[in-house]
Write a protein that binds this DNA or RNA. Structure first.
Lengths: 362, 362
DNA sequence: CTGTTAGCGCATTCAC
DNA sequence: GTGAATGCGCTAACAG
């Protein structure tokens, strides 16, 4: 690696001291206009770039933001990362993005890693904000951070996310209003993420309010949906009435559920309705479009950067914000049909039939 | 930010010099076993982490790999990044991931940024490997790098990707073999990426070999597919025979094309066949599954790390490798039907009809 | 307005 | 085997 040009080189080149050059570069203090020009010209000419390493070493700011997300390949987090990266770039910060693969140990080691890089702050989505060693470590190290997607009940440094509980409850009432009475939920493992837990709790609460009981709960691995296929085929091979609607705790699961149901010969939404959560592009591109709770993922990223910046500079006690979500009505949620499940003998209550055509009020 | 524990702290704690501690930590030189133990215990106890900044400053290695991808939200690159991150982690390296948004200027500034971080090497997908200021800058700085997905004709430091030309040519012959004669291509802007150009060239060559001409070429913005809708509706609103098959230069475009065609009342694959490129999850989850050239994205990431490591350590002249791809036959490519386009009066050649049922030979 | 100087945390000489 | 000293590139006092 060719020797990089340092602040010293440009100082020499201009016949100035390194201090003056540093001032010009950082816009600190008052310097003569001509000097500024001279330095800037030299910077251009020699192709100088300040070393982040040296900056960090001076334990000033190195304008680096640590980022930890559960997965790079889940579009939700990819979008969040994209939003955050763009906002960071605007503010002259560089994000250092690590993924935890939904693993607590990796989450913690990612924090250690970021600490070693002396990041100015951390943006992260943890598995579970109520019991995260990673967050404790950040508190202990005194590094400002902002949670993304996690909406913790207890006070933390900051967070940006949507009200998962409330959104899921809305989904429940919406599904029930369409006449469904046999309703299931497909969820990521509760032990793994607080989002899955909140969405489950909200969905349950919504169902209860609507006077319906949850017929089935299928918990799967959030990374690869292990167990989904088996569970669904078991449920649908049983005698009796089958669910006519499923709420999935995220869109990836919803898409996988649809694929599985269709592979089993069930048609969506004619035989069974599906609602997802996240509003990822893949759901919007399919036909019919996936009905889903759309969350502002890009904005969650960019707003988190803003919040973190506020913390870094003002140390104001900004504790976070809930962003709006939107129940996007696609075509995968429909009113329950007269004959939802040919295998079962049950017919929906007559008084629900009037709801059959109410699906286009989105 | 609470003062981090330094090598000095643990030296004091052990009654040793910083030099000795450094030796223990880096496994350099001979040290007494008991001393090693003592140091390691202190490291554990005090929670010491060597500062990457200081390491980088000593212009040794800071075990950081720069990464530049066109987009975080395109699953192809997200998967590649995931593969690369995992492999890097295995080897004790940390990836610093930046996205260029398919923009040459951002690509270059990303390189500058990585240079400022003194990365040990760079893994990147550039827009166009044959004319990249970013690559020139890396050469100039003497930083080893490995291209991902770019398969340049001229010699470069290293690359890992698939043979886009050959794969696209295969797609062409496959489509033609199914009886299609009116064939179009939807492509990302040629000015933007060499992949789009190679795939176009390969597709053309394949068609030529098969004795068919390309009926339509639709070029769109690779970021947001701007212009797709307009072009397609113009083509299908014209009198005469319409394309019965489209090859799309990537899966995101293929999905968007399907959505657009279906919105226009065309059925896939009954009215029109679609083939994509990349093999992203969203294509595999839809029904019918998207027919696509599946590329080993995770492996492209991990293999690139390996190749880059080889360059960093051996400075061997390893010039890269082409990885295998696979034409995944989903359900969106079918033999041309007897009446491909109700609007047009033309009927396919009788001798092609025998191919109608050959679609399940995948 | 500008120059001098002192470290930041670490790896690496060179002594002992 | 181990310690003391040096400097990587930079910023932040403190002097002029």
């Amino acid at each position: 690696m060719a020797k990089a040009v340092t602040i010293k080189d440009i100082a020499q080149h201009c016949g100035l001291s390194v201090a003056t050059v540093s001032r010009v570069i950082n816009n600190k203090g008052a310097i003569r206009a001509e000097t500024v020009e001279r330095v800037e010209a030299a910077v251009q000419a020699l192709g100088y770039r300040p070393s982040m390493a040296a900056r960090a070493l001076k334990s000033a700011s190195n304008r680096t933001l640590g980022v930890i997300i559960p997965s790079l390949t889940n579009p939700v987090f990819a979008e969040t990362a994209a939003g955050l990266q763009q906002q960071a770039r605007l503010l002259g910060y560089t994000p250092l993005i690590l993924s935890s693969d939904y693993d607590d140990a990796l989450e913690s080691s990612a924090v250690e890693n970021l600490l070693a890089y002396q990041v100015d702050g951390v943006l992260l989505t943890v598995n579970d904000a109520t019991s995260s060693a990673a967050l404790e470590r950040l508190d202990e190290a005194g590094v400002p951070y902002c949670l993304m997607h996690n909406v913790p009940r207890q006070r933390v440094a900051g967070f940006i996310g949507v009200d998962n509980f409330r959104a899921a409850a809305e989904v429940a009432t919406r599904i029930q209003a369409l006449g469904h009475t046999r309703i299931g939920m497909v969820s990521g493992d509760f032990m793994r993420t607080d989002r899955a837990r909140d969405r489950y709790a909200g969905f349950l609460a919504g169902l209860k309010y609507a006077g319906v009981e949850l017929a089935h709960l299928v918990q799967v691995d959030p990374v690869n949906a292990t167990g989904l296929q088996e569970s669904l085929s078991r449920i649908y091979s049983q005698e009796g009435s089958h669910p006519t609607a499923w709420f999935c705790s995220n869109d990836l699961l919803a898409l996988a559920t649809i694929a599985q149901l269709e592979a089993m010969g069930r048609s969506v939404p004619d035989d069974v309705s599906i609602v997802g959560f996240d509003g990822i592009q893949a759901g919007a591109l399919r036909q019919p479009m996936l009905t889903s709770v759309r969350t502002p993922n890009l904005e969650i990223g960019s707003a988190s950067v803003d919040l973190l910046m506020a913390q870094i500079h003002d140390t104001s006690s900004n504790t976070g914000r809930k962003l709006d979500y939107h129940l996007m009505e696609g075509g995968t949620l429909a009113a329950v049909s007269e004959m939802p499940d040919p295998d079962s003998g049950n017919t929906p209550d007559p008084h629900l039939q009037s709801l059959d055509e109410s699906k286009d009020d989105a």
